[in-house]
Design a protein around this nucleic acid. Structure first.
Length: 435
RNA sequence: UCCUCGGUAGCUCAAUUGGCAGAGCGGUCGGCUGUUAACCGAUUGGUUGUAGGUUCGAGUCCUACCCGAGGAGCCA
């Protein structure tokens, strides 16, 4: 019985006869010698077919294979430095071939293509090595997010995707129908997690988030994944320490587990190796002063940063940087104002280096019921919709805080990608949701 | 919603002042015993985004529209 093996573990089978099943990604050759490169799932491997070894019939069959044809190969595993692939260095000296299907001409050739074309072919584009590498790193990022939180006392709480809240601008929410009542796809599980901390202390939710904004930029998706930890009794200072440990763990784990993928996508890993605590902390006031001195003399205190501002600020540091104490007016209603200086709030964003911008937004939450009610009224929010939220401040209210980390922006930064559209298998962009 | 750029073969692009619509890749056929997006030879391939207009003649100029990209606004 010949074992069917995964390419990732091919080194264990050196000298043995094995079966490898997969898809043909490249075919080249030289007369009686034919080279196939096979994508198997766990990796890529070269197969060598030599006509005198396999006979004319099998050789002709191999020669008829087209890009993306599906095959089962039988052959001996040989070590050879010349063999390309991932992990590479090994090849299959083929003795027999079973052709499952000769693929029709594949639209995506091994060459440069335009974005429009590739996004229309996303279901096929995923088969390219680059997408394979990015999405494997994505899986690790998600796993390490969970691992770190699970290992540090956080309890997973799944918050609803269908929500009743018509709260603020419904224009940014996707509306759907809940048996005759308008319902909205979630923008955040935070408010629910503020309830959950009273049971578990430290919780997180992790799921898809939906934004119907007409945003058409390299860092916006209509549907993206966000992890939102929420912690009872946490101050802003506690949050920042948690965040820098958390983000560093994710980055260092990717470095450790995916050197080959990072090399394939040509990521400069030096820029990730420096991502260790502590991260620099600057106040919003300091950030504004830096902008004024750094070529943005007109930036007015009180506004949110635009993309060029974030890029400038992050270029001043070799690791992510916290900007804390944003103007209260510019932030959400539930953020706790600084007691001595209520025009700023106990909030902090984490900006990723190299111009990748905000990957975390977080804050201490208002814990006083009177102040929270006043804030809801000041923002013209429907009081009745927040009745349950105010309950949380009536029954054993405690200081608490939390943050949300966007998976795709984080992954775009870790992988050094110019656009978030490659960080999720099927991106939902403005006016584009096929396939 | 606004600004800028773009749409020509399956893909990536070229086409001079308005004057015969082309190349590379891919596909097909043939050749080659170490290829790495191989190479060599042959061959296949077109409603120039859509509709209208100007002109002897439009890929090229004009008008409207459609689609896409980058950015802005927006983005608890």
């Amino acid at each position: 019985m010949i074992p069917t093996v995964s390419v990732a573990e091919i080194a264990q089978y050196e000298g043995q006869e094995v079966k490898v099943h997969g898809w043909v990604t490249h075919k080249t050759g030289k007369g009686k010698l034919l080279f196939l490169r096979i994508r198997e799932g766990s990796g890529f491997i070269q197969a060598v077919i030599f006509r005198p070894n396999v006979g004319d019939e099998r050789f002709a069959k191999a020669k008829s294979l087209t890009q993306e044809s599906s095959v089962i190969l039988v052959g001996k595993v040989k070590k050879d430095q010349r063999a390309p692939g991932i992990p590479g260095g090994y090849e299959i000296d083929v003795s027999d071939i079973e052709v499952l299907q000769i693929a029709e001409p594949f639209p995506i050739a091994p060459k440069a293509h335009g974005v429009d074309f590739l996004l229309d072919q996303r279901h096929l584009w995923l088969r390219s090595r680059r997408q394979w590498a990015i999405l494997r790193i994505r899986a690790t990022v998600i796993r390490e997010i969970r691992n770190w939180l699970d290992d540090n006392g956080f309890v997973l709480m799944d918050t609803p995707i269908l929500t009743p809240s018509a709260a603020e601008g419904t224009t940014t929410l996707f509306e759907t129908d809940f048996h005759g009542t308008p319902a909205y796809l979630t923008q955040s599980g935070q408010l629910y997690n503020e309830a959950n901390i009273f049971v578990f202390g430290k919780v997180y939710c992790f799921g898809p988030t939906f934004r119907a904004e007409k945003s058409k930029t390299r860092r916006h998706l209509q549907e993206f994944w966000m992890v939102e930890p929420e912690i009872a009794f946490a101050s802003l200072e506690d949050l920042l320490e948690i965040e820098e440990q958390f983000v560093s763990h994710v980055v260092q784990s990717v470095l450790q587990k995916h050197p080959q993928e990072l090399e394939l996508i040509e990521r400069d890993v030096n820029k990730l190796e420096s991502v260790v605590p502590p991260f620099p902390r600057i106040s919003y006031d300091e950030a504004v002063r830096m902008l004024h001195a750094g070529g943005f003399p007109d930036f007015a205190w009180g506004g949110d940063f635009g993309a060029p501002h974030e890029t400038y600020l992050t270029e001043q540091f070799d690791r992510p940087v916290f900007v804390h104490h944003f103007p209260t007016e510019a932030k959400a209603f539930y953020m706790e104002p600084e007691p001595e200086r209520p025009e700023v709030c106990r909030s902090a964003d984490l900006l990723a280096p190299e111009g990748y911008g905000e990957i975390i937004g977080g804050s201490e939450r208002m814990s006083d019921p009177e102040k929270l009610l006043a804030a809801i009224r000041k923002h013209n929010l429907p009081e009745e919709a927040y009745d349950w939220y105010l309950d949380l401040r009536r029954y054993g209210s405690v200081p608490h805080g939390g943050f949300g980390l966007g998976v795709e922006r984080t992954l775009a930064w870790i992988c050094g990608l110019p656009h978030v559209r490659e960080t999720i298998p099927y991106p939902r962009l403005l006016d584009r949701f096929y396939p």
